[in-house]
Amino acid sequence: MDCREAVERLSAFVDDELDPVTSGEVTRHVESCASCAAQLEDHRQLGESLRQLDYHRAPDLLRARLLRELGAAERPAARPARRPAPAWRWLSAAAALVAVAGGTWVIAMLPRGGEEVAAREVVSSHIRSLMAEHLADVASTDQHTVKPWFSGKLDFSPPVTDFASADFPLTGGRLDYLQGHPVAALVYMHRKHVINVFVWPQAGARETFLPALTERGYHVIHAEHAGMTYWVASDLNAQELTAFARMLAPPGGKP
């Protein structure tokens, strides 16, 4: 691959949208070409700068107006799931995952005593936290501020770790209510994506790490680690969300 060909492909290369063969050729070319390597670096820096631009969230008034037009104002903001998920819905989700994952996770995916209901509840809480503009009761990037905030509000102390060094900064926490009890909700960001982590103590928690489920366009990961149960929800892609959840609740139980 010559310089012209390499430069033409740098944009798709930084987006990881080249086929593996071409991608390998670009990699080999920039290893031996300082000029193209510098342009690759320019592309990377440009991407970083662009991702730091303002993400314009919809103004509250616009949101309220749209909800009113939709007739949403009449509906209670939160309501318990009135009936269990229809079986077909779960099965189609399972089928989709099997298609993606090649069947590896079929057994883990099968409904296990309300797992599917829980995932739906988690996604509903996640959506609610985004819609109500009420993401955090305590907005802080400092884990030493967030953790004490929960004491006195919960009868347990949730593990609070900032992962800013891995580009998953902690941005705050709030109280939420899941599966019939108060839980800690920790809010992390990755690029422009909000990640909600719901944590509460689980009697008899096993070391468990379930693969990401897709529920209404969001990814949900359930893990149990060190006596706590974790539910992680975000519109971030499943791969990056899984990497994040592995830092929270390392599979295999190592801290």
Binding site: H56, R57, L62, L130, M131, G217, Y218
Partner: peptide, 23 residues
């Protein structure tokens, strides 16, 4: 007007992306 079933689907599939739409 959306039917209640459609409304539920709309809330779940479309409404969460209002921020993305505005951005």
């Amino acid at each position: 007007r959306l039917s209640p079933e459609q409304r539920q689907r709309f809330d779940a599939l479309v409404l969460p992306h209002l921020d993305a739409a505005y951005n």
